[in-house]
Design a protein around this nucleic acid. Structure first.
Length: 582
RNA sequence: GCGCCCGUAGCUCAACCGGAUAGAGCAUCGGCCUUCUAAGCCGAGGGUUGCAGGUUCAAGUCCUGCCGGGCGCGCCA
């Protein structure tokens, strides 16, 4: 089923095409900016009038006269201002849509008419270290976008492009050998050393920076590793396995859908890199500069207007991030045959991606119709305006961050609802704590930096996860008290403005979801859900449900059921699960 | 120096790819619980959208130039 906006766009668009004589008018239908303008407004008439040289209001009248409305969706239309068309929808049509959703909740968000194959590159931690705050956004935003696209019926290929290769692993292996000169340490002892990967990494790094002889051994280790020495490969694998266990534990806690099957590790491309260089050379794109092999493209200029290189092979023969990414573009284009490839990666890498995409296109490593999109996000800042760090200046481990969120949530739940059993409070706190962190992130415009602030995200007021979860528990509590004899609820009336406003808002969920799928801004969905929760709260305050006359009561229960569906399905797309009580 | 992003209420953020009178939340002040969870609802104050031009019926949104901030720019990822 088309959503309301799509249907109106089609109806008005066709009428506008006919009236203007222009085949491809954009009616530009949006939800009304003010209640007195009705439910939806048409903003595209003025532009169309400009194109065909007619007076906007006159064209608007002509379009209205020629509008067909097979489903009687529209109750009234009027021309307003310089040439807007204000549309008010028919209550019966709204209720019919609502009742359809009651019969089939999944129909609230229908599948896209055009199914695509979409790669979503997400999370992508460096396996040499533990996951830290820097990985939160790419993990959570990537998961949300994957859920949204999957829900619309697209074939989503999640790719976790973990860093599992390169110089730091030489360093780790060399340091492990310091602790256990010939790899003789028992497996369990090694295990304990690796459990705190972060500490291990820092110790190795310190030694690397302070001890030149060790640094040489580290570099040598990289050579042995890349040369395929079985002993070194085994040591490397032990790091990778341990690190992946850490990641999976974080993903499980975050309720993020990434699994080992989604791994797209850098090392996957080891055997392809030589071929990438050869291919660039055959295309005449390769140049040598100071011993490194580079691609120079005219659209990229560096200092003083000099050409800016994309280095694809170091002077020592080693390959780089760019080379691996080119190989990945190729695989996504021609093996996966993806329609879109989304890279949910820090905004600081935008130049890198512009270059990689441009080189891939110049070298025909990207198929002609794949859409390569860098879904960039900003940095999480501390209250000092610097990137979020611990007081001592270290990066904050994601595991610690989640622990603290849950601890703070437990404190608040215990304070607000001391009667609940401790077990239940703990479960609720786990849910709320994690949800708060995720929601605080998803609800911000992904492009901008934001300040990480416990008190606002867990304040349980305003545009936060707790507010939304609370709205859900109110609905669920209401539904639990439904009279036993109540038949299958159905919408039968919309007497109060609050009822109508709630139903309309619920039916707009699919419009927002398709917008998020296109633009990749999860905060649009958060804004919508916050508004939806607000509309529900107002309905809840204004319209008694259980005490109303049976017919009104059942109609309002139907509305509550729909609100529950919209909130639950919307939150699920954010990766947040609802609670029965809190 | 060049490039990308950003500048909106005291604070944190919106504004559906140019639309009508720029919206929320926090904070402040004032109302609403013998009635479905008050983690809530209602109301008030608070703005020259960094500055100056330009494009047009219409600009927070697009263009140009300044001011201020963040990030990036040849062998890390």
């Amino acid at each position: 089923m088309e959503n309301i906006r799509e249907q109106l766009s089609r109806l008005v668009g066709e009428a506008l095409n006919k009236a203007s004589g222009i085949a491809d008018c954009d009616p530009n239908v949006i939800t009304a900016s003010r209640p007195e303008f009705g439910d939806y407004q048409v903003d595209g008439v003025m532009a169309a009038a400009g194109r065909c040289g007619r007076k906007p209001r006159e064209l608007a009248e002509a379009a209205i006269a020629g509008m067909s409305d097979e489903d009687s969706l529209v109750a009234s239309v009027e021309v307003a201002g310089p040439g807007f068309i204000n549309i008010r929808l028919n209550d019966q049509a709204l209720m019919a849509r609502g009742n359809e959703v009651l019969r089939d909740p999944q129909s609230l968000i229908p599948a896209d008419s055009r199914v695509q194959k979409i790669v979503v590159d997400q999370s992508s931690p460096n396996l040499a270290k533990e996951m830290h705050v820097g990985h939160l956004r790419g993990t959570v935003i990537g998961d949300c976008l994957s859920r949204v696209l999957e829900r619309l019926g697209h074939e989503v290929i999640r790719q976790n492009h973990v860093g599992d290769w390169g110089t730091q692993f030489g360093m780790l292996i060399a340091y492990m050998r310091e602790l256990d000169r010939e790899f003789n340490k028992s497996a369990s002892l090694l295990q304990t050393e690796l459990e705190d990967l972060e500490t291990f990494y820092r110790a190795a790094k310190d030694k690397f920076d302070s001890d030149p002889a060790f640094a040489d051994r580290a570099r040598l280790s990289v050579v042995r590793l890349q040369g395929g020495d079985p002993e070194y490969l085994e040591a490397w694998q032990s790091f990778i396995d341990e690190s992946l266990r850490h990641c999976q534990e974080i993903y499980r806690r975050l309720d993020v859908g990434l699994t080992l099957a989604d791994l797209d590790a850098e090392s996957r491309y080891n055997d392809d890199l030589e071929g990438i260089i050869r291919e660039l050379d055959e295309k005449g794109l390769l140049q040598e500069s100071d011993g490194a092999r580079c691609v120079f493209l005219p659209e990229f200029k560096g200092k003083d207007g000099e050409p800016l290189p994309v280095i694809v092979q170091k002077s020592d023969g080693g390959y780089l991030y760019s080379t691996t990414d080119l190989a990945a573009v190729k695989m996504r284009s021609f093996d996966f045959e993806a329609d879109r490839s989304l890279y949910v990666v820090d905004a600081r890498q935008s130049l890198h991606f512009r270059q990689v995409f441009a080189v891939a296109q110049a070298a025909d490593m990207a198929s002609a119709n794949i859409s390569l999109e860098h879904i960039a996000y900003g940095t999480i800042m501390g209250s000092d305006g610097r990137p979020y760090k611990t007081r001592s200046g270290d990066s904050v481990k994601l595991a610690d961050l989640l622990d603290e969120a849950v601890a703070r949530a437990l404190e608040l739940v215990s304070e607000k609802n001391p009667d609940l059993a401790e077990d239940e409070r703990r479960l609720i706190a786990e849910n709320i704590g994690i949800a708060s962190v995720k929601y605080a992130d998803l609800s911000k415009n992904r492009m901008s930096d934001y300040v990480f602030d416990w008190s606002t995200m867990l304040s349980f007021e305003g545009n936060t996860a707790p507010y939304l979860l609370y709205a859900c528990t109110r609905i669920k509590s209401l539904l639990r008290k439904r009279p036993q004899e109540s038949p299958t609820e159905e919408l039968t009336s919309l007497e109060h403005a609050e009822e109508r406003a709630l139903l309309l808002k619920i039916l707009q969920l699919p419009e927002v979801v398709s917008l998020v799928a296109r633009e990749c801004y999860p905060n649009l969905l958060c804004n919508y859900l916050f508004e939806l929760a607000g509309v529900f709260m107002r309905f809840y305050e204004a319209c008694p449900v259980l005490k109303a006359e049976p017919q009104t009561r059942d109609s309002r229960l139907a509305l509550a059921l729909l609100a529950e569906q919209a909130l639950e399905q919307g939150l699920d797309l954010l990766g947040i699960q609802t609670l029965e009580r809190m």
